[in-house]
Deep mutational scan, measured.
Amino acid sequence: KITVTFNGEEKARRYYKKMQKHNLKVEIRVENNQWVVHVE
């Protein structure tokens, strides 16, 4: 499981979509004013 933190929504969403293309289970959320993407 990987957790990647971004300081911008745009970058986070781009990464999220990229990971989805690989058929990975991805989850995006905001934690402590940071955009966090969890990849299983």
Rank of each mutant, 00 (worst) to 15 (best):
K1S: 13
K1R: 13
K1N: 10
K1Q: 09
K1D: 07
K1L: 10
I2M: 10
I2R: 11
I2L: 12
I2T: 08
I2W: 15
I2G: 04
I2F: 15
I2D: 03
I2V: 10
T3I: 12
V4H: 06
V4F: 09
V4Y: 09
V4N: 03
V4G: 02
V4K: 10
T5H: 10
T5L: 10
T5C: 15
T5D: 02
F6W: 02
F6D: 01
N7P: 08
N7G: 07
N7V: 09
G8M: 14
G8T: 15
G8Q: 15
G8V: 15
G8R: 14
E9V: 08
E9K: 09
E9T: 02
E9I: 09
E10P: 05
E10W: 13
E10V: 10
E10D: 11
E10G: 09
E10L: 11
E10S: 10
E10T: 09
E10I: 09
K11I: 11
K11E: 15
K11Q: 15
K11A: 15
K11D: 15
A12P: 02
A12M: 03
A12I: 04
A12C: 05
R13Q: 07
R13W: 13
R13Y: 11
R14W: 12
R14S: 09
R14T: 07
R14N: 10
R14I: 11
R14H: 07
R14D: 11
Y15I: 02
Y15K: 02
Y16W: 06
Y16C: 14
Y16N: 01
Y16E: 03
K17I: 12
K17S: 08
K17N: 12
K17P: 01
K18F: 14
K18G: 04
K18V: 08
K18T: 09
M19L: 08
M19K: 03
M19F: 04
M19Q: 03
M19V: 05
M19R: 02
M19P: 00
M19C: 12
Q20D: 03
Q20K: 14
Q20E: 06
K21E: 13
H22N: 09
H22W: 10
H22T: 08
H22I: 10
N23W: 09
N23R: 07
N23G: 15
N23L: 06
L24N: 05
L24Q: 05
L24D: 03
L24E: 03
L24G: 04
L24F: 13
L24Y: 14
L24A: 07
K25H: 11
K25W: 08
K25L: 09
K25S: 09
K25I: 11
V26M: 03
V26H: 00
V26E: 00
V26S: 03
V26N: 00
V26T: 04
V26F: 02
V26L: 05
E27R: 05
E27P: 00
E27A: 07
E27C: 11
E27T: 14
E27L: 07
I28D: 00
I28R: 00
I28E: 00
I28G: 00
R29A: 12
R29M: 11
R29C: 12
V30P: 05
V30H: 14
V30G: 04
V30E: 12
V30Q: 14
V30C: 14
E31Y: 07
E31S: 07
E31V: 12
E31C: 09
N32E: 06
N32F: 06
N32G: 14
N32L: 05
N33P: 01
N33Q: 08
N33V: 03
N33H: 08
Q34E: 06
Q34F: 11
Q34K: 14
Q34H: 09
W35D: 00
W35P: 00
W35H: 01
W35F: 04
W35E: 00
V36E: 04
V36Y: 06
V36Q: 04
V36A: 04
V36R: 03
V37L: 03
V37K: 00
V37F: 02
V37A: 01
V37E: 00
H38F: 11
H38W: 08
H38E: 15
V39A: 03
V39H: 04
V39L: 06
V39T: 03
V39G: 01
E40L: 13
E40I: 13
E40D: 09
E40Q: 11
E40W: 15
